[in-house]
Design a protein around this nucleic acid. Structure first.
Length: 421
RNA sequence: GAGCCUGUAGCUCAGCUGGUUAGAGCGCCAGGUUGUGGCCCUGGAGGCCGUGGGUUCAACUCCCAUCAGGCUCCCCA
């Protein structure tokens, strides 16, 4: 009887052992850079209250309006988190982290979920790492966030990227700018794409993001947010640029950079790669001075970033960067006969307690098959055990790269292998 | 959510305008070497040709639907 074969849901992938070394290496780099910057890891639940996400990210955003995996259980509404900032903001408020004094430097890494149509660099379950610096309005905080992000890419050796920078201002300047944009677009509306027409009322700034051909010449001459920034916003933005210059972090100003989530204020940035297809944002972030208050906390300025791990790995692959390799096996115990197998089983722990990666064959196969298995696993040594060895108490050690074999007492053998690392 | 392209062994792919038992390389298993890997030789296993319908005397080859992947749009990490 044929049993149904199950497979992962659309846009969700298994990570097989072959890829794990790369992921673990990347994760260790992220932890290492975070440690040097003294960002502390925070782990929040995968499921969050739907309302938190809706309020935090914005009811009208695509993420909330059509891309959430959500369900009800009893009275409660759950959502698989689509991003990391709102949950961290929630945790900050829930545990009154502001009472600890100073600003909080937090980072996270983990899976996120959005019900979009999958394509290259876009999955329904994907992984992000990100950081939040909560409690400081100072442009230096923006720099700390950006430099943390850039340091990770530099550490990996991924330097063929470009950092786009803009300011979306504070609520007052944005309100004025929106009006100016609407005044500008209004007479051109009927020449513009349907998408842009729809956004005219709800979110005219998003029109600037449009890739529709017919919109381009009109967007070209649209008013720029830079002309509408309040003196405070302008001063903040100027400082961010000055500090980046001083640190030698290259960036490009992009007056059309508008980020998709409602909570952004002031500084907005995105890290772009032209090597990974049309989903070209490796990461992005900015300031969100209103979010903490929006989710029930005290008015608290904050800035953060988030980056996609799968996209980073695509870029690394395109750049021919080899991130991690799986560790070779130190010892493979090859046996002949049932007594020898028992000996192997009983002595595996001796090797392992010396921190030697050790295994044996668990299928009861021929010596030839065992040797082949050892070779496949890139074993450095084989320990060969049969009746002869058990009788004489001398065990054969085969160096797999030179094919040399020598008999050793068990003690000497352990010693020799342990010292060869 | 929209448009277009693709889907043949574990992997990468071949299979002419529909026509008898569907192929290759790599990988896997075994033997050549009854105590030994990598090279070589020999043999073998493994595919109801993504799935479900339809057209036809006949479909891996044509049509429809569906699922999955890719590209673009949308959006974003």
């Amino acid at each position: 009887m044929a049993v149904k074969k199950y497979q992962t849901h659309h846009g969700m992938h298994d990570l097989l052992p072959d890829e794990i070394a790369t992921w673990q290496k990347l994760e260790s780099i992220i932890h290492d850079v975070a440690d040097r910057h003294h960002f502390k890891e925070i782990r929040t639940p995968i499921l969050e209250p739907t309302e938190l996400i809706a309020r935090g990210i914005g009811q009208l955003t695509d993420i909330v309006s059509k891309e959430m995996f959500s369900f009800e259980r009893g009275e409660d509404q759950y959502v698989l988190r689509p991003e990391g900032t709102a949950p961290v903001a929630r945790a900050y408020v829930q545990h009154s982290l502001h009472q600890r004094g100073g600003s909080q430097k937090l980072f996270y890494i983990g899976p996120f979920f959005r019900a979009e149509r999958p394509q290259k660099g876009r999955q329904r379950q994907f992984h992000q790492f990100g950081a939040e610096l909560i409690g400081s309005p100072d442009p230096m905080a923006d720099i700390e966030i950006i430099s943390f992000m850039m340091d990770i890419y530099n550490e990996i050796g991924l330097t063929d990227t470009s950092l786009k920078l803009n300011s979306v201002g504070n609520p007052e300047s944005r309100k004025q700018y929106k009006e100016a944009l609407q005044d500008y677009f209004r007479p051109h509306l009927n020449e513009m794409s349907e998408i842009s027409q729809n956004r005219f009322e709800t979110n005219p700034m998003r029109i600037l993001d449009s890739k529709e051909k017919e919109d381009q010449p009109i967007i070209e001459n649209a008013p720029k947010i830079a002309d509408y920034l309040t003196p405070e916003s302008q001063a903040h933005f100027d400082k961010v640029q000055r500090y980046l210059d001083q640190l030698g972090i290259p960036y490009e100003l992009d007056s059309r950079l508008v980020r998709g989530l409602d909570y952004y204020t002031e500084t907005a940035f995105e890290l772009i790669s032209d090597q990974i297809g049309s989903q070209d944002a490796l990461g992005g972030g900015g300031r969100y001075d209103l979010l903490i208050e929006e989710v029930g906390g005290p008015s608290t300025p904050a800035v953060g970033f988030a980056c996609g791990i799968e996209r980073l790995l695509l870029a690394a692959e395109a750049a021919n960067l080899q991130l991690g390799t799986s560790a070779p096996l130190d010892v493979y115990i090859v046996t002949r006969g049932e007594k020898a197998r028992e000996w192997a089983l009983n002595n595996l722990s001796t090797f392992r307690s010396k921190r030697l990666r050790t295994t044996m064959n668990f299928d009861g196969k021929s010596m030839k098959a065992q040797m082949k298995d050892a070779d496949r696993n890139a074993a450095r040594y084989c320990v060969i055990v049969g009746d002869d060895e058990l009788e004489t108490d001398r065990f054969t050690l085969r160096d797999m790269s030179s094919s040399e074999e020598q008999p050793y007492t068990f003690e000497d053998l352990i010693h020799t292998v342990a010292n060869s690392k």
